[in-house]
Amino acid sequence: MTALRLVAVSAGLGRPSSSRLLADRLTEAVRRRLPGEAAVRVIELRDLAADVANAMVTGFPSPRLREAIEAVTEADGLIAVTPVFTASYSGLFKSFFDVVEEGALAGMPVVVAATGGTARHSLVLDHALRPMFAYLRAVVAPTGVYAASEDWGGSGDAATGPLSERVARAGEELAALMPARAARPRPADEVVPFEQRLAELRP
């Protein structure tokens, strides 16, 4: 059985980043629920910020940005995490998905997640993230996860409490959606006409 491919995209800007921490928690929650092994990758957009900006201006992604985009579009499941800036997703987060080819995320199972300073920004999941991925024709898991500063607790650990419950539920939902994505028909290799193959054999 081929390992399912899980990719998490984190738009956190700091190191350490609460967005990356949430991405890691969600990734682990999905892995625990998958029936077999999973090939997991976390993409930190912070490292690709200049590449994303250049691609927006020129229309041509750099090799490492192209490789990151391919990892996302070829995944069987996606975790998308952004910090909240001005009551919405970050510009870097939006710009990354703007440079993804139109239609490439159609049918992609996605868990949307966000981090912010206070719980009042939690509606970003429903007024910004869900509509964006619906426009991209992705399949958004019912449970979105928002983590405010107080959700992590004084120790910075979210191992117990409501946040861990939301993370576990979202992980279960994404894990349930991924096998169907993995079973989708892959694009067939390009068919070369017989006449063209024959011509290539001639001296």
Results as ranks from 00 to 15, higher is better:
2 T>D: 12
4 L>R: 02
7 V>L: 08
10 S>L: 07
10 S>D: 06
11 A>H: 00
12 G>E: 03
19 S>T: 15
22 L>S: 03
23 A>S: 14
24 D>A: 15
30 V>Q: 01
31 R>D: 02
31 R>I: 05
32 R>Q: 13
32 R>Y: 00
33 R>V: 05
36 G>A: 14
36 G>Q: 03
36 G>M: 00
39 A>R: 14
41 R>H: 10
41 R>K: 12
42 V>I: 10
43 I>T: 03
44 E>V: 11
44 E>Q: 13
44 E>P: 07
45 L>N: 05
48 L>V: 09
49 A>Y: 05
52 V>T: 09
54 N>P: 07
55 A>M: 02
59 G>E: 05
59 G>V: 10
59 G>T: 09
61 P>W: 00
61 P>I: 07
62 S>C: 08
62 S>D: 10
64 R>Y: 06
66 R>Q: 15
67 E>R: 13
68 A>S: 09
68 A>L: 02
74 E>G: 15
75 A>Y: 04
80 A>N: 01
81 V>D: 01
82 T>K: 03
82 T>H: 01
85 F>G: 05
91 G>F: 13
91 G>S: 13
94 K>M: 12
94 K>P: 09
100 V>S: 02
100 V>R: 02
100 V>I: 15
101 E>C: 11
104 A>H: 02
106 A>L: 11
108 M>D: 01
108 M>P: 03
111 V>A: 05
111 V>N: 04
111 V>F: 00
112 V>C: 08
114 A>D: 07
114 A>L: 07
115 T>W: 02
116 G>V: 07
119 A>E: 12
119 A>R: 14
120 R>T: 13
122 S>H: 12
123 L>A: 12
125 L>R: 01
126 D>W: 02
126 D>L: 06
127 H>V: 13
129 L>W: 06
129 L>K: 01
130 R>T: 06
131 P>E: 09
131 P>C: 07
132 M>E: 10
132 M>R: 03
133 F>T: 05
134 A>K: 10
136 L>C: 05
136 L>T: 05
136 L>G: 03
139 V>C: 04
144 G>D: 01
145 V>F: 06
146 Y>R: 03
146 Y>I: 05
147 A>S: 08
151 D>V: 01
153 G>R: 08
155 S>Q: 09
155 S>F: 00
158 A>M: 08
159 A>V: 09
161 G>N: 03
162 P>M: 09
164 S>D: 14
164 S>K: 10
165 E>K: 13
165 E>I: 02
167 V>S: 01
167 V>P: 04
168 A>W: 04
168 A>M: 01
169 R>M: 11
169 R>K: 15
177 L>E: 07
182 A>T: 07
183 A>V: 08
186 R>W: 09
190 E>P: 12
191 V>T: 13
191 V>G: 09
191 V>H: 11
194 F>L: 15
195 E>D: 15
196 Q>P: 06
196 Q>W: 10
196 Q>F: 12
197 R>H: 12
198 L>H: 08
198 L>Q: 11
199 A>D: 12
200 E>K: 14
202 R>G: 12
202 R>N: 10
203 P>A: 14
203 P>V: 14
